[in-house]
């Protein structure tokens, strides 16, 4: 049995009177790629923000390496943050800094390494994501896919144990998405990184995932391996995988209360 790196217990979060997360329980094991999938507005981004400590829950625990991060102060949280990396949906590179400065930022801030060493480390990380020679480019000169790769290089700059990915394929074409997916697989195999990925791109889910959690309306419907999810008997999971309009997940207005809704 692999070691548990992240353990979420009974996580509940309410915004206003809307319960966004309704009793989430999950475990992520060391070295695996764990995908959280679900429709827009199902709470998956909120769940990710709890995992990185950006939001405090109403109740429940988020344990990273046996430390309950919901109880930590800023200083303790900073120490945890140094052990993980995060790739943002919009890459979130600092516009005013060059590629090299972006990737070296966590190293400069958190280590006492000499500038020469940092320079070499940045080159290595950029090499890992296939962007050798782009050190002096500014983020505005890069395409969306390149920015994502720089963001990934920055996320792994500190040699983290865990990397979080927020919609890594958002806004990218299928080929670039495949490239990013391959990078994610490579990194987790080469550097033995535990990955937690939030996405709704089914192609990449089945490419990268070791295990998958399906989130729906703030609850986890099912957790399982790729095969278990593919062969799921849950109609919601099946509709989501197939991308059908008809099914238990309803978006289009139903006939019954439509007239009532219009005339109200």
């Amino acid at each position: 049995m692999a070691k548990t790196v992240i353990k979420v217990e009974n996580l509940i979060k309410t915004f206003g009177n809307r319960r966004v997360l309704d009793g989430i329980n999950l475990e992520v094991y060391e070295g695996e790629t764990f995908v959280i999938m679900g429709g827009s507005g199902c709470g998956k981004s909120t769940l990710l923000r709890h995992l990185i400590g950006a939001i405090k829950p109403d109740s429940g625990e988020v344990r990273i390496k046996d430390k309950d991060i919901t109880q930590l102060d800023t200083h303790g949280m900073d120490e945890i943050k140094k052990r993980f990396g995060m790739l943002f949906q919009s890459s979130a590179l600092l516009d005013s800094l060059s590629v090299e400065e972006n990737v070296s930022l966590p190293l400069k801030e958190h280590t006492k390494l000499a500038p020469d060493i940092i320079k070499i480390m940045v080159k290595m990380k950029l090499g890992l994501v296939g962007l050798r020679g782009f050190e002096n480019h500014m983020p505005s000169e890069l395409s969306g896919g390149m920015k994502k790769r720089v963001g990934l290089a920055r996320a792994i700059a500190m040699d983290p144990d865990i990397v979080f990915y927020d919609e890594p394929s958002a806004g990218l074409d299928p080929v670039v998405t495949a490239v990013i997916d391959k990078l994610m697989i490579d990194l987790s195999k080469k550097l033995l990184i535990t990955s937690v990925v939030v996405t709704h791109d089914m192609n990449s889910v089945f490419r990268i995932a070791d295990r998958i959690a399906m989130l729906h309306k703030g609850k986890i419907l099912q957790i399982g391996t790729k095969e278990e999810i593919k062969n799921s008997t849950n109609p919601i999971v099946q509709q989501f995988i197939a991308g059908d309009v008809e099914g238990p997940i309803q978006f289009l207005t139903k006939g019954d209360d439509y007239l009532e809704h219009l005339t109200q």
Binding site: E79, S90, A92, L93, D95
Partner: peptide, 10 residues
């Protein structure tokens, strides 16, 4: 998201 990115980098 850049401020949030700074935050997650501690």
């Amino acid at each position: 998201e850049q401020i949030e990115a700074l935050d997650t980098m501690a």
